[in-house]
Each structure stands twice: as structure tokens, then as C-alpha cells.
Design a protein around this nucleic acid. Structure first.
Length: 841
RNA sequence: GCCGGAGUGGCGGAAUUGGUAGACGCAAGGGACUUAAAAUCCCUCAGAGGAAACUCUGUACCGGUUCAAAUCCGGUCUCCGGCACCA
């Protein structure tokens, strides 16, 4: 063994060792309990960054820990290989996206292996391979059969920089999720997945996500955005038309003073003759702060009270939600209130606060109006200054006057349904998932357009529909596929006539929506449906993923799509689970100088440099030690050195004592034979075994687990073994410490395991089991408080009964002095910990 | 605006069920070794007072519950994240 710890040498040695023995290859063993540990696969940009290091270090500790615990662990890795950067590289450097991508994959794979991650590469998934994306196409066709895919014209989010459309989830603060450029609206014909068909199920399923962080579940719930309400028909005066609106507040129906419809609403075209003015409103839709409207000149009739109310075209009404038309109740909706003030429309109060709330006007939330109570009822004294959006009692609402809001909602809904004026409905904010992308480097959508037959799906037997290689990347105009004559021109599978292919490709989120299922099967070009349906299908053994780890930025996007896809695959009869991810860990960002590490901010730390200078074990250890996994990690160069120092110290202890360690065996006949210092170390070792185990089990608190190992190391350092018994305990402590440290820093522990005279292969050892008796202290420190303040401490034996502890506390010299002869009111004894004596003044 | 989460030394963070606030690490200061430096090892390290024993204050702020509060409750402030004309 060398005196100096040389991480490079050690790490390469053991990486080769693991690789040669294929230690991380996984096979289904039905009798063995399985554990599927998965980290979100990366986009192969060519370089790993600190976010990857952290993500994969967390996953690898879990995988290695679970293996030691006797689980059959599936721990795969792959590549989210389709996507825009490859295409941009093609435009900029003239290298084909395919070549660029595969080159990057090789580079990144080397980097991941250099980190000592225990992946089963024999299950590697690469989404840009036809053997993978053909099944995107296959699922697409199956969904088309079932009406879960459709095409429609619509306004879509268009990123001018990426020259493609984006799904709603992919627009963040009005900007593209990928390139951060401003998104605008464009009318295009697009393919959609009917995810809304699963809205209710995806929402209900949220209750099952017990192993997910609550905030992520909440974000999913909010994104789906269920809203109960009622649709009501308002007849349009002088026309044979009804205006159907949606509201969640039928209790305010008597307060409607005008109607608003979206400019894209079909009725807008009919009501407004001046198309230029209509266009003006259209332009002001979206992010416009100011509410703007156009009086159509037409009136609607309130079906409940017959009021004649004007119809406006308004920029703040969203066509995609509800019916694209609303009833406006300015007294009880702030947006309607603002609009009414601007256009001088009447305001009619139909809800008033309950008596007790009218009286309890708080200074921070002053009531928008003043009330006076006369003979039971309330009278409005002053004008409204803002809308009253709370619950209350109905006034001026015909037969419903006097009811509470919640009851009135039910009653009015019932009334509307009975009279055939409308229906109770449930609306969701979730929209269908637009998957068309006007790009080259993605899965071709398997559809053919025929002049005679219309839209024709590519027959299943013709899959995969391969992305052509011979295309030109100019960076101008649309997708390169539009110019690929060989791809574009085809024959209609039905009539045999000339036809054209769809040139849009699929959103890359389709690829990542089921890759975790693909890992369950063997690599290569396989017939997936056959594999699924085999009675020995591995998918039923491995799925669901037991632990999924990734960034919180996918809280809705990828995680929602994956939950949707898993259900679609279930409904195709291929899998028998609905939720793909049993437990989810969302790791925090890596922060440096107060900001997320990013190229544009120039605060990047290159993992390669880190590995070269300190080694992978240090890089892993630091990223696990500096913060608990779910919190942001503040990068610190000095902290890395601290982690490195720790490993050096462990190395140093073993180097100094290697001969003693090699010759001694752990064999202790009787603990009582041990010297006090040896007993202390022995006990500390068991305590550390317990602490590290429970910290890992308890929400993966690696930072405190590592701190415990550091404490043990400090104790080992200060221990001077003299007798044979000492050496035994010493060796035991070191051996256990190496086992505990192994999942965190696997290379150095392998090396040291061998150095202390063990057979190589710490990775195949069992996780250490602590002995509760050995971990227990026989002496404990008793804290004595007077009136809750710490006044004295004394050592007592473990297991002394409460009344004796009480006596010890009261007889404590220091306590007696402070207490003098003040009266004891009460004595509280907390078992084995603390006594609080309550005394008079 | 609505919905979440957080706020603890100079810094990253501990404190598992309400029971010793500050584990572990970093930085800083002092010392040992060295011709010197680095590395390593030892000591100190929340603030104030004190030679010391020790005392007082202290977990964003104000108040409450309790024998006892970083932890529970009410209110305020700040920061972070998500959603946002969704009727």
C-alpha cells in the first residue's frame, strides 16, 4: 500500500475490476426482492455538469446501499438523445446531428463511468435509435386508433428562435423553456395527445403519490386545475342563438350586468361586422394588462330574471377554457369590476357578508363597504370600491334571496338543470398536449396525407418510419424534412396514389415518457408488444420504479407526461400498473455565488477538473455532504478540500496501522474484558452503524450520515491500540467504517478493504447490522433544569428509575446551592434525559 | 393577487416525538513540527460581561400556549419556488 492516496490510480483500478466482473449487470430473479433505482437520463450535450454529478451520486449511493441490503437492484442509464442542440450544431458546424449526438454519448459515458457509477450498461437506452423511436410511432398509431391523438388548427405557442411550437407546459413566464426567448402565438395545424381524457384519473392518482414530495404533487394538482361549475345558456336577443357560458359561481347569476366573449369565439364573427376592430382586440389578448373590450351592440337575456344585458368582445376571456364566454358579475369578480369601471357598466350587489363578518372589520382588511343593520337585513351605505369575492348571503336574487352562497350554488344549479337552462360541468385547466414540432431531429410522426384518402396512418408493418439521414441543414425556413424529396413523397397505403408524408416530428418529451419502461427489457431491436405480453415479462417484475431522482424543474412536464403514458400503455393491455414512480426525490439546484450554475452566468465548476484534481470519490462525497439532497447545494471549493481531507485521513490511519490491521482478527469474547477506551470505540462504532443506516432510510439524509462517519473517524484517529483486544476493536471499527462509506466513495473503500487484509470485493459485502445493546451507553448525562433553565449536569447509570433520578437531581450540589430554601412546586422527569425542577420565586 | 416552502454562528448546515441550540465540515485566530513554506497535528471559536468559576442574551420580528418552544398556535416582515386575466 502506498503512503500517499492517489485517487486516479485507485479509481481506475477498481472501475476496471467492476467492469471486468460485470458486477452491475442485472437479471430478473423472481424469488429475490427487487429495487428499481432510476435517475433522470441526460440530454447528451457532451459534457456532464455539477447537476448531473449530484443527481447521479445520489442515485448511486441508493443503488449500492440497496444492493448491500440484499435487493436485486436495477440501475440503468441512457440518453434523451433527440432534440434541438444537435440540429443547431449541424447548422453551425456542418456536422450531422446523428454523428454529433453519438460522439457526445461516448464522451459522456466515459465521464459517468469515471465517476464510478454502478450502471447496468447492458440496458442502455438511446432514444434517437430507430429501435427505440419505432415504439413511439407504434404507441402513436395505437393512440390514433383509440382517438387519443387528433389534429386541429389552433393558436399555439411559437418560439421564433427554435422555429417550432411548444406545449403549454413548456412555456415558462411567456418564454421558451429551452432557449428562454419570448414566445408568441401562431395559428397552425397540430397533432395533439388527448391527455385531458385522463385529467380526472391523473388528478385522483395524485392521492396515491405518497412517496412524492408534497409540493410536486400539489403542482400537479394545480396544473390539472379541476373546477366544478355550471354551463348556462343565455339567449341572444333578436337572433336564433344561445350564448353558452361557464361559471363556478352560479350563486352570483342574479348579479350579471354584461357578458364577455373571447375574440376567437365563433359568435364574435357573427356579432361584429367591423373585422378590423375585432382584430384589434385579438392582438391585445394574452399578456395585456389593460382590459379592453368592444361593445357588439347585441344583448343577451338572463334566463333567471330576464335582465337585458349587453354583449362585449373582451381581450381577457380565454377561448380554451370553459366555453370561451363568461357572464360578468362586477360586484363579485375583480376583473369584471375593472371592466365595468372602464366602460361605465352597472354594478349589482347580490352577495353580502354575513352579519358577524360585517361587524368584524379588521384594520388590515377593511370592508369594501360600510353596512348598517336595520331590522335584520343589511343596507348598503356606500359605493363599492372593489369586488366582494367572498362567500356570503344572497340578496336581490329572487327566490334564492337569503340563502348562503354554498347552498345557493347547489340550489341554483339544480334549478338550471331542471328547467333545461344548462348543465353542471367539470372543467380542467389542463389542455391537450401538442406534440408536433417543426424540427428534424426527432421521431417522425407516422402519418401520410393522400389527396384521395385524406389522413392515412403508416401501417404498423412499415415501422419504424426512419428519419432520413441525407438532408441539408441551412437554418433557414422550416424543417429540413420538407426538402427531403425521398422522405416527403410516398405512396398512399390505401389507394396506391401519390401522397406526402407528415414532416413534423414528435416533441422529445414523448421519448422520455416511457423510457423507464424500456429499461425493463433487454437491449436492442426487439418486438416490444411480444415482450410485454410474455408471461415472464420483466416489466411486471421491475415496474414501478422504486426510487426516481431528478430535478424539480420536471415537476409538471416530464412527470405528468410519464404518468399519462404509463396509463395509456396500461390501457393497451401491456402493463398492469398506473403510477410509474413509487418514490420521487427532487434534488435541489447546484448554486455558486448565489446563482444556479450556468454557462451564461459564468459560474460553472467543471466536474472533469474536479475528478482530475481530487478524484471521483471526493466529488461524490462533497456533493452528498454539503446539503441534504432535496435542498439547494451551495458550491464551495474549500468544502471539496474538506471532503478530500477526510478521505486522506482515512487512508492515513490505515496506512499507519496496516500491519497491525492485517494481522489482527476481530474476535471479542467478552465486552467486559475491554479497556474503557476500547469499549468506547466499540460502542461508537455500533452507534455509527445505527446512525448511518437510519439516516439513509430516513429520507436519504446523506449529509448527517457522512457527518457521523467523520465523527467515528475522529475517534479512531485518537485511539491508540495496544493490547490484542484493542487491535481487534480497532480493526472492527475500521472495517465497519469502510462498509458504511462504500456506497458514498466506493473506490477508496475497495482499495482499503483489500489493504487491511480482506479478500477484494467490498462491493459484494453485506450492509453492517448494528447491535442495539452494544450501541447503548451505560452512563448518560442527566440534565438538571430549574424553571426550564439548564443549571447542572451529572452522569448517571442507564436505566435508573424515575424516582431515583428525581432524588439525584434534588441532591445535586449545585442545584441545592441555587435553590436555597425556595419551595419546590413540581418536578418533571424526562426518562433518561432531563429533570426540570419548578420552584417558587 | 393566489398556492406552497424557507428564515438558526463569519459560511454550508445539525438538533428524529416539544426536553442540553449550534453535531459535522469550512473559514478565522493561536500553538507544535520545519531553515522557511505547504501538508499534518493540537487548542480556541454564537454574542456580551468576567482573570476565572460563571452569568446574562440569543434560532427573522411581535405576541400566545407549556414545567419546558428553533420545533406548537395567532399575527407581521423578508427571501425562494409554482400558478396567474382559467370566470
Amino acid at each position: 500500500m502506498k503512503e500517499k492516496y492517489d485517487p486516479q490510480k485507485v479509481e481506475l483500478k477498481w472501475q476496471r475490476y467492476w467492469d471486468e466482473r460485470r458486477l452491475h449487470k442485472t437479471e430478473m430473479v423472481k424469488s429475490q426482492k427487487k429495487f428499481y433505482c432510476l435517475e433522470m437520463f441526460p440530454y447528451p450535450s457532451g459534457e456532464i455538469h455539477m447537476g448531473h454529478v449530484r443527481n447521479y451520486a445520489i442515485g448511486d449511493v441508493i443503488a449500492r446501499y440497496k444492493r448491500m441490503r440484499g435487493y436485486n437492484v436495477l440501475h440503468p442509464m441512457g440518453w434523451d438523445a433527440f432534440g434541438l442542440p444537435a440540429e443547431n450544431a449541424a447548422i453551425k458546424h456542418g456536422v450531422h446531428p446523428s454523428e454529433w449526438t453519438y460522439r457526445n454519448i461516448e464522451k459522456m459515458k466515459d465521464q459517468l463511468n469515471r465517476m464510478g457509477l454502478s450502471y447496468d450498461w447492458e440496458r442502455e437506452v438511446t432514444t434517437c435509435k430507430p429501435e427505440y423511436y419505432r415504439w413511439n410511432q407504434w404507441v402513436f398509431l395505437k393512440m390514433l386508433e383509440r382517438g387519443l391523438v387528433y389534429k386541429k388548427f389552433s393558436y399555439v405557442n411559437w418560439c421564433p428562435s427554435c422555429a417550432t411550437v411548444l406545449a403549454n407546459e413548456q412555456v415558462i413566464d411567456d418564454r421558451c423553456w429551452r432557449c428562454d426567448n419570448k414566445v408568441n402565438q401562431k395559428k397552425l395545424e397540430q397533432w395533439f395527445f388527448r391527455i385531458t381524457e385522463y385529467a380526472e384519473e391523473l388528478l385522483q392518482g395524485c392521492d396515491e403519490l405518497k412517496g412524492w414530495p408534497e409540493r410536486v404533487v400539489l403542482m400537479q394538482r394545480n396544473w390539472i386545475g379541476r373546477g366544478e361549475g355550471v354551463e348556462v345558456d343565455f339567449p341572444v336577443e333578436g337572433m336564433d342563438e344561445h350564448l353558452r357560458i361557464f361559471t363556478t359561481r352560479p350563486d352570483t347569476l342574479f348579479g350579471v350586468t354584461f357578458m364577455c366573449i373571447a375574440p376567437e369565439h365563433p359568435l364574435s364573427e357573427k356579432l361584429v361586422k367591423d373585422k378590423a376592430k375585432l382584430e384589434e382586440i385579438k392582438v391585445k389578448c394574452g399578456k395585456e394588462d389593460e382590459k379592453t373590450g368592444l361593445n357588439s351592440g347585441y344583448y343577451a337575456l338572463n334566463p333567471l330574471n330576464g335582465d337585458k344585458i349587453p354583449i362585449y368582445i373582451a381581450n381577457f376571456v380565454v377561448m380554451e377554457y370553459g366555453t370561451g364566454a363568461i357572464m360578468s358579475v362586477p360586484a363579485h369578480d375583480q376583473r369584471d369590476f375593472d371592466f365595468a369601471r372602464k366602460y361605465d357598466l352597472p354594478v349589482k350587489v347580490v352577495i353580502v357578508p354575513e352579519q358577524k363578518e360585517r361587524e368584524a372589520v379588521s384594520p388590515t382588511h377593511p370592508s369594501p363597504w360600510r353596512w348598517e343593520s336595520k331590522g335584520g337585513g343589511g343596507n348598503l351605505l356606500s359605493e363599492l370600491t372593489e369586488a366582494y369575492e367572498e362567500e356570503g348571503i344572497l340578496v336581490d336574487s329572487g327566490q334564492f334571496t337569503g340563502l348562503k352562497s354554498d347552498i345557493a350554488r347547489k340550489e341554483i344549479t339544480k334549478f338550471i338543470e331542471e328547467k333545461g337552462l344548462g348543465t353542471a360541468v367539470v372543467n380542467y385547466k389542463l389542455r391537450d398536449w401538442g406534440i408536433s414540432r417543426q424540427r428534424y431531429w426527432g421521431t417522425p410522426i407516422p402519418v401520410i396525407y393522400c389527396g384521395n384518402c385524406g389522413i392515412v396512418p403508416v401501417p404498423e408493418k412499415d415501422l419504424p418510419l426512419i428519419l432520413p439521414e441525407n438532408v441539408r441543414f441551412t437554418g433557414k425556413g422550416g424543417s429540413p424534412l420538407l426538402e427531403s424529396e425521398t422522405f416527403l413523397n410516398t405512396i398512399c397505403p390505401i389507394c396506391g396514389g401519390n401522397a406526402k408524408r407528415e414532416t413534423d416530428t414528435m416533441d422529445t418529451f414523448v421519448d422520455s415518457s416511457w423510457y423507464f419502461i424500456r429499461y425493463c427489457f433487454k437491449k436492442g431491436d426487439i418486438d416490444l408488444p411480444t415482450e410485454f405480453r410474455s408471461p415472464d415479462s420483466e416489466v411486471n417484475y421491475w415496474m414501478p420504479v422504486d426510487q426516481y431522482i431528478g430535478g424539480v424543474e420536471h415537476a409538471v412536464l416530464h412527470l405528468l407526461y410519464s404518468r399519462f403514458f404509463t396509463r395509456v400503455i396500461r390501457d393497451l393491455g401491456l402493463i398492469n400498473i398506473s403510477e410509474p414512480f413509487q418514490n420521487l426525490l427532487t434534488q435541489g439546484m447546484v448554486i455558486k455565488d448565489g446563482a444556479k450554475m450556468s454557462k451564461s452566468k459564468g459560474n460553472i465548476v467543471d466536474p472533469n477538473y474536479l475528478i482530475e484534481k481530487y478524484g471521483a470519490d471526493t466529488a461524490r462525497l462533497f456533493s452528498l455532504f454539503a446539503a441534504p439532497p432535496e435542498k439547494d447545494l451551495d458550491w464551495s471549493d474549500k468544502g471539496v478540500e474538506g471532503a478530500h481531507r477526510f478521505l486522506n485521513r482515512v487512508w492515513g490511519i490505515i496506512y499507519k496501522n496496516q500491519f497491525k490491521l492485517q494481522s489482527s482478527k476481530f474476535k471479542i469474547d467478552n465486552i467486559s474484558d475491554l479497556q474503557a477506551s476500547a469499549l468506547r470505540l466499540y460502542r461508537k462504532t455500533h452507534q455509527t452503524m445505527k446512525k448511518v443506516s437510519t439516516d439513509i432510510e430516513r429520507e436519504y439524509h446523506f449529509n448527517t450520515a457522512i457527518a457521523a462517519m467523520m465523527e467515528l473517524t475522529n475517534e479512531i484517529t485518537s485511539f491508540q491500540p495496544e493490547s490484542d483486544e484493542d487491535c481487534s476493536v480497532f480493526k472492527f471499527a475500521i472495517e465497519q467504517m469502510l462498509l458504511l462509506l462504500f456506497p458514498f466513495s466506493p473506490h477508496i473503500t475497495e482499495e482499503l478493504w483489500e489493504a487491511i487484509g480482506n479478500k477484494p470485493g467490498i462491493s459484494e459485502q453485506k450492509w453492517p447490522e448494528w447491535d442495539e445493546d452494544a450501541a447503548r451507553e451505560d452512563q448518560i448525562e442527566l440534565v438538571i433544569q430549574l424553571n426550564g433553565k439548564l443549571r447542572s449536569k451529572t452522569m448517571i447509570s442507564q436505566g435508573i428509575p424515575d424516582d431515583e433520578i428525581r432524588k439525584i437531581a434534588l441532591e445535586d450540589q449545585k442545584i441545592k446551592e441555587i435553590m436555597g430554601n425556595r419551595k419546590i412546586k413540581k418536578v418533571i422527569v424526562v426518562k433518561g434525559k432531563l429533570v426540570n425542577i419548578v420552584i417558587g420565586e
